[in-house]
Amino acid sequence: MIAGVDRDGLAESLVELIRRTTSKLPDDVIKRLKEYRTKEEPGKMACRTLDTIMENVDMAQSASRPICQDTGTVTFDIQHPLGARQSEIREIVKEAVVAATAKNYLRPNVVDSLTGEIKSDNIGVGHPVIHFEQWDNDYLEVTLVLKGGGCENVGAQYTLPQPALKAGRDINGVKKVVLDMVVKAQGKGCAPGVLGIAIGGDRAEGYAIAKKQLKRKLDDINPNPVLAELEGWVVEQANRLGVGPMGFGGKTTLFGAKATTLDRIPASYFVSISYMCWAYRRRTMTIRNGEVQHD
């Protein structure tokens, strides 16, 4: 038993988490996309593209089908109470992924990097990605993020200083490289998107923590005023670039940015950026005393 549910109960609730994540965008994402839709001129490509996106969101939800065919890297963040066995949870998560793939909630999406062999059940070396954290609460919380390859490929990691961009080791330097990444991405990551930004750390932790920012709700407010200002600045300036939905041109290039810092060693100053597409698939479930709750 884990948080009061048995093995089958946990597997079943995880399949439901995958169904919800692949087919239903979170409310904060829908709300923000609708807000930006009103900023685009009616009749223009940007506006009609956002309309098609919303139509697609509705269709996926009502049919319980994938919003995007690239169901992406399947990443579970699992926080569990003391006493839960991670090896057991890992097996149950894999079972759920196999079942969800059979139901077409997930595309067979895992390929052996050397041989090209397709793992048609989505179980492979390092996939699904499962991060465990044992916490002091008495309940289990699982957040699932499905992140497609288009947006993953446009993410970037910079080292400061960057002479070509006149970007030094300060907050202005950070702003310059983040905006440079948005210019380079154009529409390729399925704009409009959201950035997860990590300042500092090493290469591996930088990317990991940048991605973790994508778990935050779009309407939260960063408690650090410098980072809050950075988040607002990035969205506002990115939306002056004219890239627009899908790179067709328009006012909506980003609809969110979330930043954090890690301490660094003197020689390194990394800025790591993870780009999430508009098909921002993120869902959480909690299990407490055997009761499953989906967000």
Partner: peptide, 13 residues
């Protein structure tokens, strides 16, 4: 020809 990325249901239809 550019189609709308992520619009997998609208296009599958």
């Amino acid at each position: 020809l550019h189609a709308i990325g992520g619009a997998s249901q609208v296009l599958a239809r």
